[in-house]
Design a protein around this nucleic acid. Sequence first.
DNA 1: GTCTATACGTTGATAGAC
DNA 2: GTCTATCAACGTATAGAC
Lengths: 220, 220
Amino acid sequence: MSSPARKLDIREANEALILRAAEKQFALHGFRGTTTEGIANEARLPKANVHYYFKTKANLYRQVLKGILEDWMDAAAAFEADDDPQRALTAYITAKMQFSRQRPYGSRVWASEIMRGAPVMERFLGTTLKTWVNARVRTIRSWISAGKIRAVDPESLLYMIWAVTQHYADFERQIAILNGGNAFDERQYRERVEQVLKLILGSVGFEAQEMTRVRQRASA
Amino acid sequence: MSSPARKLDIREANEALILRAAEKQFALHGFRGTTTEGIANEARLPKANVHYYFKTKANLYRQVLKGILEDWMDAAAAFEADDDPQRALTAYITAKMQFSRQRPYGSRVWASEIMRGAPVMERFLGTTLKTWVNARVRTIRSWISAGKIRAVDPESLLYMIWAVTQHYADFERQIAILNGGNAFDERQYRERVEQVLKLILGSVGFEAQEMTRVRQRASA
DNA sequence: GTCTATACGTTGATAGAC
DNA sequence: GTCTATCAACGTATAGAC
């Protein structure tokens, strides 16, 4: 009952529960606007437990961001896997759209953190992210030199990919209201991924012959 | 000295001061995370004055959003002014990029409001914005039918424009850090507007003259 | 119109019973 | 490991002197 293994299980389960609740609250209300009581209620635990497991609100916030960064890295890896621009961009955009779908609150915590000036993520942005961006910029430049894509500014292209893919997580509510009050279902979201791919690939010069199956925009 | 005209001047000046300070604070910390004291400090006024002019924090927040919506409408008008897709899209994207440049905090307040579920803007989104979007969707469909642009999903295109243009306001800090720690200067920003135009216009099939020849399909 | 003082609820964090 | 009770600090808002 109180064996070390059992205790670890409880700890892990509760920590995961609190992290998930915290991610949602931080996404909805930002760091300052989130209360530990709000997190506790969301996790259906007493407020004191939140402090027992994570000590301070600031520390819990850092742990939430850390989890998001891990998933971010996974999506980033999709870009590096292939040297063909169409395949690499498709893999990356698809991974980012999946992240937005599966972890919309994580995306919003990131957005909120940057909107307030990125006090916690500053270091990550200036080191890991900058290094990653520099490498991607070189890859894109090589594609341009080889005539594989149009001559666009690589950073502008990267930012467009981030902006568009994250928009579907961060502005989910607006999109749902404009969709008649309903969030996208799975079918709608898959179709949207196709459209995003078509638009972004189109912006660097690829036309949509490869994905003509999806195109169904003839009717009024 | 205390003539009605003079009093009105003071009121208007202070209200404007508080509104600007509030916009910044709400942008940085969201509705809940913003304190009336923070707004007062930002405006260099005593906390009580904020309540004297705007009564409650919630009301001040609504006034800030109202001001942002007005500017948003102005930018929206740029889309309707022209029936030629290239000119209409260029005017709209340029107006939106200018808004992001001149009012980055306004853009972030909007983002923050939507990320928390749009409790205040819900009505606007479902009425004015939805009507505007529907009209724009019809326009874009007519361009597609007339063969003036590629057959893309109109809403996906609109969302891409919003996402990309607002990204430069909402993620300003991240962009600055990736830019070596410095925010874009005027020249850099103008160039970025050109790149954004090139990418988005390219996504619907317009190619910049300079690189018409460069475009060749990547042979895998 | 301005601002100090303050009422009163909320919040982050902890102590200590279970 | 769990949770109730508690507290100092902070937050919104107002009263009332100037």
